[in-house]
Amino acid sequence: MEVTLLVQAADDAYRILENARGQAVELLNTATKLTSDTRWMEEKKIEAVLMGAQKKKSSLQNFVVTFLMLFAFWALLSGKFDSFHLSLGVVCSFVVALLGHDLLFANVRVGDIRVIVQRFLAYLPWHVYQIVVANFHVAYLALSPKMPISPKIMRFKTKLESDISWVTLANSITLTPGTITIDIEEGEFVVHALSEKLADDLNTGEMEDRIAHVFMEADHIYIQDVLDVARIFAEFR
């Protein structure tokens, strides 16, 4: 009697465990499938964006955008808006755009120029604030009698992809007092920093993230990671 009960109990326990295991496996499978689905969808989306950018990036559009930018620059310089000077401006911008329409947008990959300009303008106040903070820090370093500097050269790999964003990051680093970009070697930045605090500020990578946001690079990876984690959590709950 007792033995039967014991066996039955063990059987029940085993069955429950088996059930639970089956459910867990099924759940994991669904989660994996969902993840790969979202990844596939995201990849499709990125591919579409890339293809669209490629299609849009015809040389005619480059030419038109270059021409408009140059003509705006001409109007800014000239300040004379009679028909004679404006027509001179049109001719000059046309000639220069004809010569150099492949220079201004040589390596722009993804993204819309208007969005980039908007985000860049939104990035500037933060960068000016950063410059002011670093400026006071460097002034403190220079004026304190002990001169607590610890200059060092640091290297870091960047996650940015195009050369224009590399150059923006490098110039942002150089504009911030106390840090200077020495070189970019195959996406690896070589930076000279004057003190520990400045180097730590740079190592947090906030500037890099913001520039990636400006040029719409690398942020699709973050969106995808968040999507994946959210789906898995929802399934398990």
């Binding site: 310089l77 911008s93 000639v95 220069v96 010569l99 224009i164 490098a170 970009t181 970019i184």
Partner: peptide, 19 residues
């Protein structure tokens, strides 16, 4: 790459300024 990109962007504006 820094010098290259900066001058790539700058050259059309320099030419327009010259004109």
């Amino acid at each position: 790459i820094i010098i290259k990109t900066i001058s790539r962007v700058l050259v059309p504006f320099i030419q327009l300024y010259a004109l």
